[in-house]
């Protein structure tokens, strides 16, 4: 199997997943696939169904309809076997708080029947907790607990890591640490990661693919490249010679100019930025600002879900 084939290997797939609580459809007919080696950003508002899907993938909750296939297995027994190759953190890491980080990893090793003598130290080293491994977890900060949670999820050398809101409540330094750790795991161990987060700018720096969920339905699945293409780019210009500049741009075929305050205006379209700048400067128009701005993932997401916000996503 060559590298390209490995990259495209589907290791987890969800088909028609449905979950009902009473008459409420919390997840409706959700389908998506995870390919080996990719990092998936799982995006959705609070209550969209992200955690419910993750809980079903972990086996904590049963599906009302649909099918989950992990490493080609979809029977109860096969799924249980498949889950042994997964590391899962739902909301907060499951830790024994009155034990040390070292003991927590030892317990996880026992759980998976791993006998390695050096693994505990290696994992503590990997997540940067080697020097405080003997300290009780109850004295750990939120960021340290998250990192320990990831270390524990790595005990069984998982091929898939599923993380539900791993940066929730972390300070900026903690967020960067987790991001770098996840990128390192993906790069060095080729671990496929599914990560849900509200911090979309953070996901944008991490994910190679996106799954967008709204009200229990998968709205869109797209790659980073597709997202970049879909997030419309604007050329933003500021000049005191606004009308002259507009006339020059009109000659270039630019028609959709939107005026702003302070002599700003912007337009979108498939224009060569360098060419636009060169033409304006040839006409000796003094530009006080000239930039290419891309719509953020946040804006794209809000637009996709129909402008709905609950004050939590954006």
């Amino acid at each position: 199997m060559d590298t390209q084939q490995l990259q495209r290997e589907v290791i987890l797939s969800v088909e028609g997943m449905t979950k009902r609580y009473g008459k409420n459809n919390v997840v409706s007919n959700a389908s998506f696939q995870l390919e080996r080696g990719k990092i998936y950003g799982f995006i959705g508002q609070n209550g969209a169904g992200k955690t419910t899907i993750i809980r079903m993938l972990a086996g904590y909750a049963k599906l009302n309809a649909g099918r989950v296939t992990i490493f080609g297995q979809s029977t109860e027994k096969g799924l249980a076997e498949g889950r042994k190759k997964m590391g899962i953190i739902v909301e907060n890491p499951a830790l024994y708080k009155n034990m040390s980080a070292y003991d927590n990893i030892e317990i996880q090793k026992t759980l998976y029947g791993i006998k390695s003598d050096t693994l505990t130290e290696e994992l503590l080293q990997l997540v940067g907790l080697a020097n405080i491994g003997k300290r009780k977890v109850k004295n750990f900060s939120l960021g340290m607990r998250q990192r320990l949670g990831i270390a524990m999820a790595l005990v069984n050398s998982p091929e898939i890591l599923i993380l539900d809101e791993p940066v929730n409540g972390l300070d900026p330094v903690g967020i960067v640490e987790i991001r770098e750790l996840l990128l390192k795991l993906n790069r060095e161990r080729n671990i496929t990661i599914l990560i849900s987060s509200h911090i979309l700018s953070e996901l944008y720096q991490l994910a190679t693919d996106y799954i967008i969920i709204h009200r229990g339905c998968i709205l869109e699945k797209l790659t980073l490249e597709q997202l970049d293409q879909k997030c419309a780019s604007y050329i933003v210009v500021q000049t005191e010679e606004r009308e002259t500049a507009k006339a020059v741009l009109a000659q270039m075929g630019v028609t959709n100019i939107e005026d702003g305050d302070n002599n700003f205006f912007r337009f979108r379209g498939n224009y060569d930025v360098k060419e636009v700048a060169r033409r304006l400067m040839e006409e000796k128009i003094l530009l006080t600002h000239f930039s290419l701005q891309t719509e953020s993932l946040e804006n794209y997401f809000v637009k996709l879900i129909g402008g709905e916000t609950n004050g939590q996503v954006v």
């Binding site: 972990a58 086996g59 904590y60 249980a80 076997e81 889950r83 042994k84 997964m86 899962i88 739902v90 909301e91 907060n92 499951a94 830790l95 024994y96 708080k97 996880q108 759980l111 998976y112 069984n156």
Partner: peptide
């Protein structure tokens, strides 16, 4: 409450 029991379910134990 600590979800440590759930970890055992996820680890494939019946």
């Amino acid at each position: 409450s600590a979800r440590t029991l759930q970890t055992q379910v996820a680890a494939g134990y019946s």
